[in-house]
Design a protein around this nucleic acid. Structure first.
Lengths: 314, 314
DNA sequence: ACTATGCATAAGGAGATTTAATGTATTATG
DNA sequence: CATAATACATTAAATCTCCTTATGCATAGT
């Protein structure tokens, strides 16, 4: 199918040497010594079976064969150069992120616009899917996943620790005269009584929760629906407060107890270690870590404010 | 002017791997191990900054970027393959020879046709020029030159030793009653009395030639004209018998004495040592050496025959 | 469950490539 | 005309790339 190609390294040298008609000049462009150029040309000439350059006194010139070869080699290299320049650009121009739904809905969706505004030449593809992701197997630059952050070979940044605390609508709380102590919650319906987080939280509050039977695994990632149900006053949910600051501030949900628990899980930004310095990856990483930082700074303030308000309400 | 190219060796590997969508298959085509392919692809991916293959369970497939790159890389390599195939063919298809005039006129001209007939796909360019030739500086495959055969870096084959002996037309010989002894020649005009060969020859025959004053350097390469003059009966010339076998056989010239001298000079086939195995060079070398061999075999016979004839004439 | 297939990785080494130093030839210069 | 400057060739030694061997891991097929 294909006659064997000459050594490719010698071709690159030939291309440059032919352009300049000078081994010395070519060696400068290629960042090597003149001796190396001379050597490579010799290799190529031996391979082709005929001289490619005529050694004139103070310059070399192409032989007939060299003259025919040079433009084709140049063209081929131009093709490659073009293709790779585009490929590198293109690969830098699209940032594809896969994220678990909870994080997308409660944090990323409302902020990603700012990222796109800041980096206008960077298109963002946002994919929402659960489960783990194998970067060797799927075309994503970044992933946001829930877990403990122990993924080998991947760079990880904790975005939001999966803290949790019971939440409910103010109306539901008022229906039983307010929530004064943890056991009050047990008078109300639970939106997902099987969530293991309940036990952890009640244990931390030294309150028995035997009547709830927990599932073995937490179901992080489905908080969005539970939150909607809680807002609608259908019961008490155990949620990650950081994701619902807005609802709390607007009074659509209340978090009756400051106490948050957490089980070591969290939402992580992950990507292959080897790609940590790819520009678009760096851009997103730096941006989101700053957003997170600011978010928590504002949350500090919000909590203090609510505490004061709550003191009035209850 | 040009963004740097990725390592070219990795491109060749990529091209094959993309064609097969299989590292193993590619490694077979390329004659290397699967590990080597894997390594090269990794290099390239790191260089481009993005994966080019998705590692699916039992096969790899191209990523979007890989998909865009593959056809361009293939095209570039196809270009190169084509160009070099042609160049190699072309460089094999034209044999260019530079030769000194004497040899061309007296030996090569009448035989080169047979070479061209034997190798019809080989065009021959015959250049007649004196002086030395620098293969690094001029586009010739072969040269035929007069000298002592001591050219460093060049492969040399002695074609015809520059032997010499006086020759003249039979008519001129008859005009003084035949040539019985060397001194008889001195009674006749010399076509080029300054040729240093005269002295060597007369010395070898123990005959004084003081009346001739020789130039310091022989003038090999201009024999053709002297021979013509001798045939026309204008005088005695000192010539290389091997070149005038035909004239001798036809009786247009006679060589009165068997004794030939030589001064170490000769006609040589020369070419760069490094190119000794280039097919067209090998073809010509083998062909001409055989022609020479046959020429001398026939000359042996001719000399014997002439000797018998001469015995009758004189 | 077991085998076969396909890719990844690590270590080691052969060979290719590059450099540094030097030589040769030619042109330019004082 | 001698000298300096330019450009390429050549050599040996150092370096580094690339390849192989050996091994591991995951998946698909039996």
């Amino acid at each position: 199918m294909s006659s064997k190609l000459p050594p490719l390294s010698s071709l690159r040298v030939f291309e440059a040497a032919a352009r300049y008609c000078s081994f010395t000049r070519a060696s400068e462009e290629l960042g090597m010594t003149q001796a190396a150029v001379s050597y490579q040309i010799k290799i190529l000439e031996e391979r082709v079976g005929t001289p490619l350059f005529l050694r004139r006194p103070r310059q070399v010139s192409l032989t007939e064969t060299g003259e025919r070869l040079a433009p084709v080699v140049s063209e081929a290299f131009e093709l490659l150069r073009g293709a790779f320049a585009v490929a590198e650009d293109a690969s830098q121009g699209l940032l594809s992120i896969t994220t678990v739904n909870t994080f997308a809905a409660n944090f990323l969706a409302e902020r990603i616009g700012r990222f796109q505004f800041k980096y206008e030449d960077l298109a963002v593809r946002l994919d929402t899917s659960p489960g783990i992701i194998d970067f060797a197997r799927e075309e994503f630059d970044l992933a946001i996943r829930a877990g403990r952050g122990n993924w080998p070979g991947l760079e990880t940044h904790l975005l939001v620790p999966a803290e949790f605390s019971p939440m409910l609508s103010p109306e539901l709380a008022a229906s039983i005269g307010g929530i004064k102590q943890p056991s009050d919650l047990l008078k109300l319906p639970f939106i997902d009584p099987s969530d293991p987080w309940w036990k952890i939280w009640f244990d931390a509050m030294d309150t028995s929760s035997d009547e709830l039977k927990c599932k073995p695994r937490s179901r992080m990632g489905t908080q969005t629906l539970e939150a909607k149900a809680a807002e609608a006053g259908q019961g008490v949910a155990i949620l990650t407060p950081a994701f619902y600051r807005d609802s709390l501030n607007r009074g659509r949900l209340i978090q009756p107890f400051e106490r948050v628990c957490h089980d070591g899980f969290g939402y992580w930004l992950v990507y292959p270690k080897a790609r940590r310095n790819v520009p678009k990856i760096r851009k997103f990483r730096d941006w989101i870590l700053l957003e997170i930082k600011e978010h928590y700074e504002r949350e500090e303030i919000a909590i203090t404010e609510r505490r004061e308000t709550d003191a009035i309400v209850y």
